[in-house]
């Protein structure tokens, strides 16, 4: 029964903040929808103020939604029981500095309802997993930012949750540590855990997540698989970068005559072709005109390109498309 339920289900979520009696209402979320399935790594992206943190806070019951619903394995987020299956790593978390790493995991494990006997078994393994074994009995106040992040990750995992909500998990972590965290998250997803990653580091999201939702002005502006979002922006066309020499106007015209989209950018050509046969036709035409082919490679826009394009839409004068 449980296996058929979505790990996270958000429907029409809206949040309006009001400060004081006369404060102007600020809409943080304007009705967002998304679903995260067990075993999925899902990224939540968006510029500052897009509503990412508000979404995560509502999922954890830290903030109350104005409208709409959010469920964790079918339980409404207002029910504290929904959080029994959630592991959370907040951004800028502050574990009590007087606790050791071991005591921190023990305290927060107990607060999640884990018995002392289970904690005694789990904690050493978890500390080993986040590479903090040698620091188990050192007070948290002595930890570096990266070590605190690792401890936060261990605290999020201590009660063996089915959903992980992680806010900037690699913040302050060195490149090797980042890779280790990415691997750990992939392992958790492979075990069937759903992971929601909230990060500004687009390359991290691109490397880690299966699917992303991009928030803009409190709405889901784009959602889908990372591969789909970063694929060609011209449906039915595949993009290539071609370096040929020499490039003449006749060559460009002959390319365009085939129906290809051609643009000259910084000494190379950006081509959009229908298929491989179409691409080969262009190569043949270049050779026929005496141009030497130096490089030909497929082009994909990075997640950052997609993100920047979305953010640009916020700029004055830009078209404001809403929804997905």
């Amino acid at each position: 029964m449980t296996a058929t339920l979505a790990a996270l289900e958000v429907r029409g979520l809206r949040k309006v903040y009001r400060s004081g009696l006369r404060g102007r209402p600020v809409t943080a979320l304007s009705g967002i929808d998304f679903t995260v399935q067990p075993g999925e790594l899902f990224g939540l992206l968006g510029p500052n103020g897009a509503g990412k943190t508000t979404t995560v806070k509502i999922l954890l019951g830290l903030t109350h939604a104005t409208e709409g619903s959010a469920r964790i394995f079918g339980l409404p987020v207002g029910d504290p029981e929904s959080r029994r299956r959630v592991g959370y790593l907040p951004e800028g978390h502050r574990f009590p500095g007087y606790l050791t790493a071991r005591a921190t995991l023990s305290v927060f494990g107990q607060m999640s309802g884990v018995s002392r006997a289970d904690l005694a078994r789990r904690i050493p393994a978890l500390l080993e997993r986040v590479k903090l074994s040698n620091w188990a009995d050192v007070k948290v106040k002595k930890f570096s930012k990266g070590m605190t992040q690792r401890l936060g990750l261990a605290a999020a995992l201590v009660h063996e949750p089915d959903v992980l909500l992680l806010d900037e998990p690699t913040d302050g972590v060195d490149p090797v540590g980042r890779r280790e965290i990415r691997d750990l998250l992939r392992e958790e997803a492979n075990k069937g855990r759903a992971v929601l990653l909230n990060s500004h580091l687009l390359s991290e999201i691109e490397l880690t997540c299966d699917r992303v939702a991009m928030l803009r002005q409190g709405k889901v502006a784009a959602e889908g698989r990372v591969a789909d979002l970063t694929a060609s922006q011209n449906p039915g066309f595949t993009h290539y970068k071609m370096i040929v020499s020499p490039v003449s106007d006749e060559l460009l015209t002959s390319f365009r005559d085939t129906g290809a989209l051609v643009e000259r950018v910084n000494g190379h050509l950006q081509l959009a072709t229908r298929d491989l046969e179409h691409l080969n036709t262009l190569v043949d035409r270049a050779r026929a005109q005496g141009a030497a082919l130096q490089e030909l490679s497929p082009m994909r826009s990075s997640l950052e390109d997609v993100f920047v394009d979305l953010v640009k839409m916020d700029a004055p004068g830009a078209s404001m498309e809403g929804g997905k």
């Binding site: 830290l62 959080r83 909500l165």
Partner: peptide, 18 residues
């Protein structure tokens, strides 16, 4: 109630009043 602390406590399966 400090930022960074309350998140850690409320994200556990415990009611606010409790």
């Amino acid at each position: 109630q400090e930022k960074g602390t309350i998140d850690l406590y409320l994200s556990r399966p415990v009611g606010r009043v409790q």
